[in-house]
Amino acid sequence: MTLLTLHTILTTYLVLGAFLLAIGLYGMFAQRTLIGMLISAELMLAGASVNFMAFNRFLAADPTVGQIFTLFIMGIAAAEAAIALSIVLAVYRNYRSIDTEDVTDLHG
């Protein structure tokens, strides 16, 4: 196993998927705006898709299943992005801000 044959082993892809998931999780904590959190969610979904595709390529009996699952993840992610962005626009209209610290009507 050398650096140049990394693309032939399953572990590389699993580590990449875990990295994308973890960095999306970090972004959820670190980002202060709603759009930033949406971007982090997209990163987490990308990590999950990479995992599905890796298992599909290396382990699955029927190699179309993982590809179709990834296509459905893309469709769901597109719907999620559309809904989340219109919620962001509605929040911006009402509060003139997309900062999560400003949307505090229920803060008590």
Binding site: L10, V15, G17, A18, F19, A22
Partner: peptide
Amino acid sequence: MGGLGFLTSGAVFAGLAFLGASTAWKRH
């Protein structure tokens, strides 16, 4: 928040990467 987020995501990454690398996956 930033420190806690870094710790949490680092733990998640380390755990998942370790699991992925150490499991003996059954090839088809």
